[in-house]
Computed example of a mutant assay.
Amino acid sequence: MFTIEHEFDATVITLVDDGEELPLIEDVTIAAFEDCVTLEQLDPRTEEVSRITLSLSQVRDLAAALNLPEGSYRLERKPD
């Protein structure tokens, strides 16, 4: 399950682990800003939120990587 909210400066997506497998994992919150994307998840052992920040270039690479076989790649942008 997931939710999408449009806020003033970001689009926020929350991924909720509602699978059949136990134990369930803490929610992941993804905030897409103009210049970066952040991922946050509560660590239940420490009760602290872990945050990862990706540049938009890293997000594009991640999206492409999900559909490619093992290997090393470099994406080249086509001029507009």
Rank of each mutant, 00 (worst) to 15 (best):
M1P: 10
M1A: 13
M1S: 15
M1Y: 13
F2H: 12
F2W: 10
T3I: 04
T3N: 06
T3R: 05
T3K: 05
T3S: 14
I4L: 13
I4D: 07
E5H: 11
H6R: 15
H6E: 15
H6L: 14
F8V: 14
F8D: 15
D9L: 09
D9W: 08
D9Q: 11
D9P: 00
A10L: 06
T11M: 12
V12S: 04
I13L: 10
I13Q: 02
T14D: 02
T14R: 06
T14N: 02
T14L: 03
L15F: 10
V16L: 12
D17H: 00
D17S: 00
D18I: 00
G19C: 00
G19T: 00
G19R: 00
L22E: 08
L22M: 08
P23E: 03
L24F: 00
L24P: 00
I25N: 08
I25W: 04
I25C: 07
I25R: 10
E26Q: 11
E26Y: 05
E26T: 09
E26H: 05
E26K: 04
D27S: 06
D27M: 02
V28I: 12
T29Q: 09
I30R: 01
A31C: 08
A32P: 01
F33D: 02
F33E: 05
F33V: 01
E34D: 13
D35I: 02
D35G: 08
D35F: 06
C36H: 15
C36A: 15
V37N: 01
V37Q: 01
V37I: 11
V37D: 02
V37T: 13
T38G: 03
L39V: 05
L39P: 02
L39C: 08
E40T: 09
E40S: 13
E40C: 07
Q41T: 07
Q41R: 12
L42R: 08
L42C: 07
D43N: 14
D43S: 05
P44F: 02
P44K: 02
R45W: 11
T46D: 04
T46S: 13
E48R: 12
E48C: 08
E48L: 13
V49L: 06
S50N: 15
R51G: 01
I52V: 14
I52W: 11
T53V: 11
T53C: 09
T53F: 04
L54M: 09
L54S: 00
L54F: 07
L54D: 00
L54C: 05
S55V: 03
S55W: 05
L56K: 08
L56S: 01
Q58E: 15
Q58C: 03
V59A: 08
V59I: 10
R60E: 15
L62E: 04
L62N: 03
L62T: 06
A63K: 13
A64F: 12
A65E: 10
A65L: 13
L66V: 08
L66T: 12
L66K: 07
N67C: 11
N67W: 09
N67I: 10
N67S: 15
L68V: 06
L68C: 06
L68M: 12
L68N: 07
P69H: 06
P69K: 06
P69F: 06
P69I: 04
E70G: 07
E70V: 10
G71A: 07
Y73T: 03
R74T: 14
R74K: 11
R74N: 10
R74E: 14
L75I: 11
L75Y: 04
E76T: 09
E76K: 11
R77D: 15
R77Q: 13
P79G: 05
P79I: 07
P79Q: 07
P79E: 09
D80T: 11
D80S: 12
